[in-house]
Amino acid sequence: MRNTKIKFTLEKMLTERNMTQKELALKTGLRESTLSDMKRRNALNLSHVATICEALGVTDISEALELTYDK
């Protein structure tokens, strides 16, 4: 059986929108440290993911989450 991982593509979404983590923190009300943890450790809190997606105008969750498989 393969090991499946879910990656939160926060860095990619911010880059595509030319937005900083600080700007996203201000827009969402989430702390910068929370966003940093989500980006670095891929620590997902689904309500935070939903808040971020709403703030970034993401309507397709596949833009925010990526599945990877280890062999």
Rank of each mutant, 00 (worst) to 15 (best):
M1E: 14
M1Q: 04
M1D: 11
R2A: 14
R2L: 10
R2W: 03
N3I: 09
N3L: 09
T4K: 13
T4S: 09
T4G: 06
K5Q: 15
K5N: 12
K5P: 06
K5W: 11
I6N: 02
I6P: 00
K7Q: 14
F8E: 02
F8V: 07
F8T: 08
F8I: 10
T9V: 11
T9L: 15
T9Y: 01
L10S: 00
E11H: 12
E11P: 04
K12I: 13
K12L: 10
K12F: 04
M13Q: 13
L14E: 08
T15K: 14
T15N: 13
E16R: 05
R17N: 14
N18G: 14
M19E: 12
M19N: 01
M19W: 08
M19Y: 11
T20P: 10
Q21H: 06
E23A: 13
E23N: 02
A25F: 02
A25N: 01
A25Q: 06
K27M: 10
T28G: 05
T28L: 08
T28P: 02
G29I: 04
G29D: 10
L30M: 02
E32M: 08
S33Q: 07
S33W: 05
L35R: 07
S36R: 13
D37S: 14
M38I: 13
K39D: 06
R40F: 08
R40I: 09
R40E: 11
R40Q: 13
N42R: 03
A43W: 12
A43S: 13
L44Y: 05
L44T: 04
N45C: 05
L46T: 15
L46A: 06
L46K: 00
S47H: 07
S47W: 07
S47D: 14
H48P: 01
H48T: 02
V49N: 07
A50K: 06
A50Y: 03
T51K: 15
T51L: 10
I52L: 03
I52Q: 05
I52K: 06
I52R: 07
C53Q: 11
E54I: 04
E54H: 06
A55F: 07
L56E: 05
L56R: 10
G57M: 04
V58R: 01
T59F: 04
T59Y: 09
D60G: 04
I61K: 05
I61E: 02
I61A: 12
I61G: 00
S62R: 15
S62E: 05
S62T: 11
E63H: 15
E63T: 07
A64R: 04
A64E: 10
A64Q: 08
A64H: 06
L65H: 05
L65V: 01
E66H: 12
L67S: 06
L67G: 03
L67W: 07
L67V: 14
T68P: 00
Y69P: 00
Y69I: 06
Y69C: 11
Y69D: 03
D70F: 03
D70I: 03
D70P: 01
K71I: 15
K71A: 14
K71H: 10
